[in-house]
């Protein structure tokens, strides 16, 4: 028996929003520690890794490890039926071919359940090596979303260049070019608005705008985002989900032909 209950459905709704444009289907691997999801987009350019810890749920029970293969578009349709303040419970029997979502209104006067067919997904799993990154940049997630959106108007790629002075995002194309430079913040009133850079070595890498924009669908999950970069390895874009886990996106860089 698997059962996971969240007091607020909004976390799960936001998680789905953060992955459903990038992935069509994915396996939720559930065990004693919580729920893990790892999946590549169809083009195998990026990888999504989601962790929701058992202790972040209001109730969590997983008697036997279970993999729930879900169509994310169907799951998203079901989660849209939940009110933000509803409690959500995901349930599945051992060896089940369906998963059930139960939504309860705060006053318990409305209880809905939706059963969804599971899929047998035989997806490839990638081993992500422990990596010491040359640069990590922490900034407001809303600011990062805005930068990606603004620069997307100029070209298909964004160059991210990190030095100890700051981080610079650039794009160029038919209409011209754009550069946005962020300096490390000296002092701020709100911690989530700070720009914090840790740098061992300067790094400059080029990434596809389209994917960065997909990643920013996670903005509502966290006030801050962390970018980790080293030369010639995938960028990591991490959103920490308060009290329960994180979502990390890995994006392969573009390279000179």
């Amino acid at each position: 028996m698997f059962e996971a209950r969240l007091l607020r459905s909004s976390i799960l709704k936001k998680v789905l929003e953060a992955i459903k444009d990038l992935l069509t289907q994915a396996t939720f691997d559930c065990d004693d520690n919580g729920i893990q999801l790892q999946a590549m987009d169809n083009s195998h350019v990026s990888l999504v890794s989601l962790t929701l810890r058992a202790d972040g749920f209001d109730k969590y029970r997983c008697d036997r490890n279970i993999s729930l293969g879900m169509n994310l578009s169907s799951m998203s349709k079901i989660l849209k039926c939940a009110g933000d303040k509803d409690t959500v419970t995901m349930k599945a029997q051992d060896n089940a071919d369906t998963v059930t979502f139960v939504f309860e209104s705060p006053n318990q006067e409305k209880v809905s359940d939706y059963e969804m067919k599971l899929m047998n997904l035989d997806l490839e799993h990638l081993g992500i090596p422990e990596t010491e990154y040359s640069c990590t940049i922490r900034l407001s997630s809303a600011e990062f979303a805005r930068i990606c959106r603004d620069l997307s108007q100029f070209g298909e790629s964004i160059v991210i260049s990190c030095t100890k002075e700051g981080v610079r995002f650039s794009a160029s194309g038919d209409i011209g070019s754009a550069n946005i430079a962020l300096a490390q913040t000296a002092s701020v009133d709100k911690e989530e608005e700070a720009v914090v850079i840790e740098m061992e070595e300067p790094v400059t890498l080029t990434f596809a705008c389209q994917y960065l924009n997909y990643f920013t669908k996670a903005t509502s999950l966290s006030p801050q985002v962390q970018l980790s970069m080293s030369a010639d390895v995938p960028l990591v874009v991490e959103y920490r989900i308060p009290d329960i886990g994180h979502i990390r996106y890995y994006l392969a860089p573009k390279i000179d032909d």
């Binding site: 195998h44 990026s46 490839e124 990638l126 995938p234 392969a252 573009k254 000179d256 032909d257």
Partner: peptide, 13 residues
């Protein structure tokens, strides 16, 4: 520039 695949960095397990 050409887009690398994520599988060229992370091995399939």
């Amino acid at each position: 520039m050409s887009q690398k695949s994520i599988t060229s960095f992370f091995k399939i397990t």
